[in-house]
Write a protein that binds this DNA or RNA. Structure first.
Length: 579
DNA sequence: CTAGGGTTAG
């Protein structure tokens, strides 16, 4: 219907040509008429017709018409960059407007190199870029992670005196931030007189995209204290995501409050990130409740709750929600299947796991990734079907990675199959993976079967290789601030108080029957030094700090980067019993 | 004489 009306107007245009008015009076209205027709197009076919008429009327040489033809064709969702470029080829002296829109079109279509090439063609042909050129061009650099090109472009911005343009500045903040050059990103930001929500947003979102969650929150705090507060949905969602990764439940709740107070309603994205935050911060019930009350759930909402339930060992409920999702007519994707398969793994549902695996491939047409194979190896390994797990690894269509061998290794440790464990370890080392924690597992595997010589051999190997353990850190939220503690660290806040508290805790726990388990300290040091090292593990520092600053009985939630060591685990258990 | 920045979830 839309199509016919535009074509009808095209005919009007021709009939006007049959009864021309005097040229100087006529020229502009005709141009404008053409442009308004161009803008009304809803399909490429209509556009081609209008383009044809413009060619017939010889109006392509009007910069106004050509510009709008190219821009519309480049940017509309029905448009075509190839077609836009073919029009562009016909224009003798393309304006900066035309170049800008072609650059934007290439960026929109993810032809990022073409966007940069278009810019260099622009420069070669002596067309001066303007403040409209750079936002799109810098976006291309962001997507290409092209920091060098981005910096060159920043130099052009200076050369042309465009460094004070608000849009260019925000694009630069974003470009530097997402390319990992945080200091440059900050430098541009600091240069702005009147910081807007968009500049803060660019700064904060860049930290989030790099996984710098602590920095994300502290910048959000700065934004608030500098009075640039506006409940901005996207920023609050980024904050929620930071809370999720940091286990900052209280700040997450607060953000939930801000959203409720400032937004007229919560959309799917906001609700889903709230659910994910509650679930991953250990408050499954709250997240589950929110999920059940959601009016419209999408694939991602299901995804977070399924993996959340699986994570909390509520496998059967996870599988139930999955079947609800299918019933609702939503299509599962590869990530959801990772959740489903891991739910099966936690519940020891081997047969069901394989059924879901087949269903994923044959019913939903999802090719299993290495992650899915990882779930299956884990599933078999936990169930003690180690040979089958090994078979699966050998028969996978892709090369196994360290994660798979590690999964098999730890299953072998649990089920005391040293022989296969050694095979797994050998393959792991062949991948040049030399993690201290893997050596710990192997050493413990030998220790379990009293093969002390092998235990000693592994320790020597580890010391020879000078393997540093991944530095362990723990995060804890106290009064809506997140604090980070690193093992053996003395540079954290209120160090003296924390060590004093540690000392007291240890004394009290020993009274309760705790004795340090030094078996996992694979360092060539004496027993006393081992105990010292254990007592300074980051989670103990974090607990001590939290105990100092919270009232009795309030929960302490700790987020860690690596698995808790045995000793800390015992320490926790004694602690929990005490509370 | 047209247009542009940040935009969020697994």
């Amino acid at each position: 219907m839309v199509g016919t009306s535009v074509l009808h107007q095209t005919h009007l245009l021709i009939s006007q040509e049959d009864h021309p008015r005097s040229p100087e009076f006529n020229f502009r209205p005709k141009e404008q008429e053409c442009v308004s027709l161009v803008k009304k197009c809803k399909r490429i076919e209509e556009f081609k017709q209008v383009h044809g008429q413009i060619l017939k009327l010889g109006l392509l040489w009007s910069s106004f018409c050509a510009s709008n033809l190219v821009a519309t064709c480049a940017l509309s969702d029905w448009g075509s960059m190839d077609y836009a470029c073919s029009i562009f080829q016909q224009v003798e002296e393309p304006s900066s407007f035309i170049f800008n829109n072609l650059i934007r079109g290439h960026v929109k279509d993810m032809n990022l190199e073409d966007a940069l090439l278009m810019y260099s063609e622009m420069l070669e042909r002596g067309v001066e870029p303007d403040n409209f050129t750079y936002p799109a061009l810098l976006k291309a650099c962001v997507r290409l992670r092209a920091l060098d090109e981005g910096m060159q472009i920043h130099a052009h911005v200076f050369k042309l005196g465009l460094e004070d343009d608000e849009f260019v500045q925000n694009s630069l903040i974003n470009m530097y931030g997402k390319c990992g050059a945080m200091r440059h990103s900050c430098a541009v930001f600091e240069h702005i007189d009147q910081k807007t929500v968009a500049s803060w947003s660019a700064l904060i979102a860049a930290r989030a995209s790099m996984g710098m969650w602590c920095e994300c929150l502290s910048l959000f705090g700065d934004m608030n204290s500098e009075g640039c507060w506006r409940a901005e949905e996207s920023i609050l969602v980024t904050v929620l995501s930071a809370c999720t990764h940091l286990g900052a439940l209280d700040l997450g709740r607060c953000t939930h409050g801000s959203l409720l107070r400032n937004m007229s309603g919560l959309n799917v994205i906001v609700e889903t990130s709230l659910i994910d935050m509650y679930v991953k911060c250990g408050y499954l019930e709250r997240g589950y409740c929110l999920f059940q009350r959601m009016c419209k759930k999408n694939q991602l909402s299901y995804s977070v709750i399924i993996s959340g339930l699986a994570m909390h060992r509520r496998s059967l409920e996870a599988l139930k929600v999955f079947s609800d999702m299918l019933e609702e007519g939503l299509k599962p994707d590869d990530v959801i299947y990772v959740g489903v398969l891991s739910a099966c793994g936690h519940a020891g549902l081997v047969e069901e796991g394989f059924q879901y695996f087949d269903r994923m491939r044959f019913e939903h047409g999802i090719e299993p990734t290495i992650q899915h194979y990882g779930c299956m190896v884990d599933l078999l390994g936990r169930a003690g079907m180690l040979d089958k797990a090994f078979e699966l690894i050998k028969n996978m269509p892709m090369e196994p990675n360290d994660v798979l061998w590690r999964s098999l290794l730890s299953a072998c440790k649990v089920h005391r199959n040293v022989e296969l464990g050694e095979t797994a370890a050998k393959n792991l080392f062949q991948l040049n993976s030399h993690n201290a924690s893997d050596y710990v597992v192997i050493s413990n595997m030998y220790a379990q079967v009293q093969r002390w010589q092998d235990v000693a051999m592994i320790r020597t190997k580890m010391i020879d290789k000078k393997l540093a353990q991944t530095p362990g850190f723990s995060l804890v939220e106290v009064k809506r601030n997140v604090y980070k503690f690193v093992s053996q660290d003395k540079s954290h806040p209120q160090c003296d108080g924390v060590y004093e508290m540690l000392h007291q805790m240890e004394w009290q726990l020993e009274f309760e029957g705790y004795s340090p388990d030094t078996s996992q300290v694979l360092l060539d040091v004496d027993e006393e030094e081992k105990r010292q090292r254990l007592s300074r593990h980051s989670q103990k520092l974090a607990i001590a700090f939290a105990l100092i600053h919270t009232s009795q009985g309030s929960p302490i939630r700790i987020v860690r980067n690596i698995r808790m060591c045995n000793d800390c685990h015992i320490y926790y258990e004694v602690n929990f019993d005490d509370l």
